[in-house]
Structures are given as C-alpha cells and as structure tokens.
Amino acid sequence: MSIQHFRVALIPFFAAFCLPVFAHPETLVKVKDAEDQLGARVGYIELDLNSGKILESFRPEERFPMMSTFKVLLCGAVLSRVDAGQEQLGRRIHYSQNDLVEYSPVTEKHLTDGMTVRELCSAAITMSDNTAANLLLTTIGGPKELTAFLHNMGDHVTRLDRWEPELNEAIPNDERDTTMPAAMATTLRKLLTGELLTLASRQQLIDWMEADKVAGPLLRSALPAGWFIADKSGASERGSRGIIAALGPDGKPSRIVVIYTTGSQATMDERNRQIAEIGASLIKHW
C-alpha cells in the first residue's frame, strides 16, 4: 500500500480515536468582514473530516451557485459507476470541434485522439475544463442524473440543472445549479471518507483534487509548508466565487472547508484575496 493510500485508509480509523476539536470565532469575524469588503453574501462552513461535526458556519443553509465545484461531485458519480462495473477509467471518448465550449484548455488539444474517462476527470478537476465536464455528464446521463446520484447519497439540496457554460449564470434567487455550504461539505465528506466509493476510488478523487492547478490564489496561497490540501474552485457570473477543500497539517486532511460568495461587484483578484484571507484566519486559529 502506498503512503497516499495509507493516509486515506486511516481516516475512518482516526475517527474513533480523534482528539476533540474546537472552533475559533475569529474566522467568522473574517467571513463577515469579507461580506462587507465584497458587498456580497458569503457562505462558509468548516467540518471535522473524521466526526462530521460542524466546527463553524455562516449562512450554511443558504443557496449559492455551485460553479465548477460541481466537477468533484461529477467525478464522484463517474467513479461510483466504475466501482459498479458500469464504466472504465481507461475508456477512450472521441469528440468533435462542435463539442468544445468556452474554457477547454485540455480537451481542445485532443480533438484527433480523444481522451480517456480518467483523463477527462483529471482535466475537469485539475484544470476546470468545461468540455471535459460536459463529456463526463453525458456518460452518466446528464445533469438530472447527477442530481439523482446526489439524492441517493442523501443530499436533497444540491442540484445540477444545466450544462457548461450555462450553469454559471448565477441569477439571484434561481435555485438551478446551486447548493448550500452545509450540504456540499457533508456530500464531499461522504465521497472522501464514506463507503459509497471503494478505497481506490476515494484515493483517485482526492488525488485529482490535490493536483488542482487553478486554485492557487485561494486557500493554497495561505497554506503553510507541510500542510495538505485537495480542493476545487469555481467562478461564475455576478461576482460569484467558491472553493471546496479537504485540508490539514502534517500532510493529511482533517477538515472540510466550503466557501461560496455571490453578488459582488468586486474584481476577481479581490474575491480571491478575501477567500485567501479567510483561509489565513482559519489556519492561524486552527
């Protein structure tokens, strides 16, 4: 067993022997300050990975656009099909120029040879490739089937209704393509630590998230040396920005953090900075 597999395998073990964890309200002060700075709603939740206990939250049951954070859930659904023998990570999918949508930095380079399901999930999570996400959605039956998968997991909140890039419209009070911080955190925890996926698939999912290449300005920018993070960011219209992450010190994840914001007129750089500052406060008061 590799060191990485050993780390994931021990998560349920540590759950039975973990020391108590305590929240620090200073982080919530920073979350509220971020709302003021951005002139927008901010949703935040911090969940103990082992016990599932909510350590701190702000607007945990308000809806926010999922943006590209849905791609982790999508690849979780794909992996569940792999575990059930209904899909193969090595299966090659061919597509055409007509399938390409905006922001497809990986898939646009493989029009001649296609990409495997594994490569598409990697592109969707690590590079947030939109065409990769659409091709993967097709393999499971579309957005409604992803919503059904989540319902079967016990998540009756999170929903995907449209494809890339339309799902990023982020219209106020529109429940399409939205989640709540509490629902997303719970669902992510189930995918990473529960029995829904095999150990190999849980490890694959967290490996893809750990290799995320487009979330550098967010929580990763505040991460001390030696800390672990596996994450997925998202951005969409109407000043929306978000990130879902499993992180912790000593090279292993111990908490789930979900941050969403929407309705801001601030620049992308400012939205990134506010999320990074929330992360810095979280780490300082860990």
Rank of each mutant, 00 (worst) to 15 (best):
Q4V: 12
H5P: 05
V8R: 14
V8G: 11
A9V: 10
A9D: 05
P12N: 13
P12I: 15
F14G: 07
F14I: 13
A15K: 05
A16H: 15
L19I: 15
L19G: 15
L19W: 14
P20R: 08
V21R: 01
P25R: 07
E26K: 06
T27S: 03
L28K: 07
L28V: 14
V29W: 05
D33E: 13
E35L: 00
E35A: 04
L38W: 05
R41Q: 08
G43W: 00
E46V: 09
N50S: 14
L55G: 02
S57K: 10
F58V: 04
F58M: 05
R59H: 08
E62A: 06
R63C: 04
P65K: 04
P65I: 02
P65C: 02
M67V: 05
M67L: 12
S68A: 00
T69H: 01
L73Q: 02
C75R: 00
C75F: 01
L79W: 00
L79S: 01
S80F: 13
R81A: 07
V82R: 04
D83C: 01
D83Q: 06
A84S: 13
A84V: 14
G85V: 04
Q86N: 14
Q88I: 12
L89T: 03
L89P: 05
G90F: 13
H94D: 11
H94R: 12
H94E: 10
S96L: 12
Q97S: 15
N98A: 08
N98D: 13
D99K: 09
E102M: 14
E102R: 11
S104K: 00
K109A: 12
K109S: 11
L111P: 08
M115V: 01
T116I: 03
R118D: 09
R118I: 07
R118K: 12
E119A: 07
S122R: 13
A124R: 00
I125V: 12
T126D: 09
M127I: 10
N134D: 01
L135A: 04
G141A: 03
E145L: 09
F149H: 07
F149S: 06
F149L: 07
L150C: 08
L150V: 08
N152G: 13
M153R: 04
G154D: 04
R159A: 02
L160M: 10
L160T: 06
D161S: 03
W163N: 06
W163S: 06
W163V: 07
E166K: 08
N168I: 04
N168P: 02
N168E: 07
E169H: 11
E169Q: 14
I171T: 13
P172R: 08
N173I: 08
N173G: 15
D177V: 01
T178S: 10
T179G: 00
P181T: 01
A182S: 15
A183W: 07
M184I: 08
T186N: 13
T186Q: 13
T187C: 03
T187N: 07
T193V: 15
T193L: 13
T193C: 14
G194E: 08
T198P: 03
L199E: 15
L199V: 15
L199D: 15
A200D: 13
S201A: 11
R202A: 12
Q203L: 09
L205V: 03
I206M: 15
I206K: 10
I206Q: 11
D207C: 13
E210M: 08
E210R: 11
A211H: 14
A211L: 08
D212G: 04
D212A: 01
K213H: 09
K213P: 02
G216E: 10
P217H: 09
L218S: 03
L219K: 01
R220C: 12
R220T: 01
S221C: 09
S221N: 09
S221A: 09
S221D: 08
S221H: 10
A222F: 05
A222G: 06
L223R: 01
P224A: 01
P224R: 01
A225G: 12
A225N: 15
A225S: 09
S236C: 04
E237R: 15
R238G: 13
R238V: 10
G239A: 02
G239E: 01
G239T: 05
S240D: 14
G242Y: 00
G242V: 06
G242I: 00
I244C: 03
L247R: 00
G251N: 13
G251Q: 08
K252T: 12
P253C: 07
P253A: 15
P253D: 02
I259Y: 01
T262S: 09
S264D: 11
S264N: 11
S264I: 03
Q265K: 14
A266Y: 05
A266R: 11
M268D: 07
D269A: 12
E270Q: 14
R271T: 09
R273L: 07
E277H: 04
G279A: 10
A280V: 12
S281A: 15
S281T: 14
K284L: 09
K284M: 13
W286E: 00
